[in-house]
Structure formats: structure tokens, C-alpha cells
Amino acid sequence: MADITKSRTDTPTLWVERVHPAVWALGLVMLFMPAFANGFWLFQVFGWTFILGMIALSLMFLAGYGGMVSLIQMTVAALGGYGVAILGPSGVAQISLGLPWWLYVPLAIAIAALFATLVGALAVRTEGIYTIMITLAMASAFFYFTRQNYGIFNGYSGFNLVVPPQLFGVDWRQPVPFYYLTLGCAALAYAAVVYVARSPFGLALQGTRDNPRRMAALGFNVTAHRIAAYTFAGAIAAVGGILLVWQNAQIAPGTAGLPAVFDILVIAVVGGLRRPSGAFVGAFIYVLLRTFSPDVLTAFGLSNERFKMLIGFGFLAMVVFSPDGVLGLWDRWRARAGRRDPLTGKERG
């Protein structure tokens, strides 16, 4: 846990002083990435990492702080994406309304967040595996609904030519602008989660995770807090979904198909559910595997469809050896390194 309580009363320090130097270094590298990475890396690898990271971050918020494993996050993201496709301009002119961007972007986020709230209102009455089942059922229902509904969701073919608005004369789908757009959104979402985790709302959510009965005995409305958590997480997932549609320039039912729904869970668990940064670590690993494993597999004479097997094995290994994800591995390695003598490398008593 980040310890803000200390800083509240002890010698006052600026928040910038409390950030680890490695974080500053990482931030600088991120900021100047376009200077040494090509368009493919910026757009495909990092852009996608930030997008999937945001959607996984919304799951991390619910599962890590709220103890609620929701499989609806990818669906909420896709609804955000459908929102911009339907409300804004797209290649399907007979459905898309073509509203201005300042209207359709907030509306799409609001609609997705409202949907997340409604799903939350049903899901928070369940615990553990039942939460997983009910959100999975709704994710599945959404997939089949979008595939069969042609009036709003344009059925099987979905929407194409959904691109970001030409704001400030910039084509935001070019690699460098898109990199900064996704980096900016991801950084904001990350900062929002880190900040809110220590706010009364975030603390109360962690309280409901640890002990819902006691929270009620302290005067908190546990159900309302959990539903509000779905709304907050839904808004973050929606932003990720909108960026995802802009990246692909299209959206179809498969965007929120069950494989995609499970991928978000895999990303969040592989990265680690205990800290917000885990979502992005998991997303980066996933994107690297998705992007480069086909080449590796074909080099060994295997079908490039087998990348799913690699991801599956990775997930299995993670669940067996480090249930708290890559970040958990890192924490344990740091703890062990801290006990070692720096000269001899031997563990201290």
C-alpha cells in the first residue's frame, strides 16, 4: 500500500519527492519514445498496450480494491467503442448519427458507464464465483445481441471507418499522435486510480473488500459503494474502448467476444491485481506475445494460431507460481535482493 498517511503529519514533502527515481526514468523514456521507436512499435505495440492496459486497469480497480472479479469490462469498453461509432461518423452512414466529437465522446463514455452501473447493480448482490458467472453471462448476451441486432449495432459486420476527429489539425491515427493520445489517456487513468484509491471512496471500497459487514456497521452503504465502483471502472474501460475502435478504425461483435473478455482477465492476473501498474505490465506482455509469437511459432514450423497456447501456458504458469502476477514476482525478488549482502551475494541470516 502506498503510505500517504505518513506524509499527512510527518515533515511535509512535495509529492514529486516521494516518486521513485526509476518511475521518473520510465516516464522520461515513455515521453521520448517516438525519438527511437518506429511507427509499428508506437502504434501497434505501445498504443495497444496502453489501451488494453486501461481496460485491464478497470478490472484491477474492481478486483484489487473491491474484491469483485468482473468479466464485463471488455463489454463496457466495446459499448464505449460502439457509442462513438453510432453517435459519431462512420462508414455505415444509415446508422451513424455523425454528431460533433465534443458531444459523441462524452456521451459514449456516459452510456458505457451507465451500462456498467446497471451491470454492477445486479452483480454486487453476488459474491466470488457468482459475480464471475453473472458478468460473464451478460458479456455473452451482449456479444450475441450485437451480432443479431442490425438496427443499432449493424449486426455481424459492425462499423468501419471509425476514426478519431481531426482535432487541432492533427491526424490522431498517425503513429506519433496516436502514441501520445493513448499514453496521455493511460497516464490519466492510472493517476486517477492511484489517487482515488486513497480517497474516502477508494478506502471505503477497500474496506468493503476486507469486511463488508463491518463497513455496514460503520455507517457505509456497502451496495451503493460497490455499484459506484462499477461506474468509475466503467468510465475508464469506456475510454480504452473508444481508443481501441480508433486504433482499428472498426468495431464488430468480435471486439467483445468471449476470447477478448477472457484476455482482459488474463492480462490483469498476469500483471498482478494488487497494484494499478500490474494492468499495464500484463498488457505489455500480452501484446508482445500476440505480436511476435506468430513469427517465432512459424520459425519452429508450428501454426501461428498457436499463440493462444503460449498465452494459456503463460497464464497457467503465473497462476501456479505467482498468483499475484509479475509484480508479485518482482516484489519477492526485491525482498530477497534486499536480504542479500551486496558484496558476497549471500543471503543474510
Binding site: M1, D3, T5, Y195, V196, S199, P200, F201, G202, L203, A204, Q206, G207, R209, D210, N211, R214, M215, L218, G219, F220, N221, A224, H225, A228
Partner: peptide, 25 residues
């Protein structure tokens, strides 16, 4: 108790539970 939170946070939550701003971000 809230075992994943500090002593100060536990008491702060208790104080917050009976006052306004329970949903404050």
C-alpha cells in the same frame, strides 16, 4: 477489521462512515 489497511485508515474510515463525503473522490 480491515486487515489490508493501516490502523489510521481503519479509524479514518470509521469517522468517514458517519459523516458526509463517504463517496468523495
Amino acid at each position: 477489521l480491515f486487515t489490508g489497511l493501516s490502523v489510521a485508515d481503519n479509524v479514518y474510515l470509521a469517522c468517514r462512515g458517519v459523516s458526509r463525503g463517504r463517496f468523495s473522490l
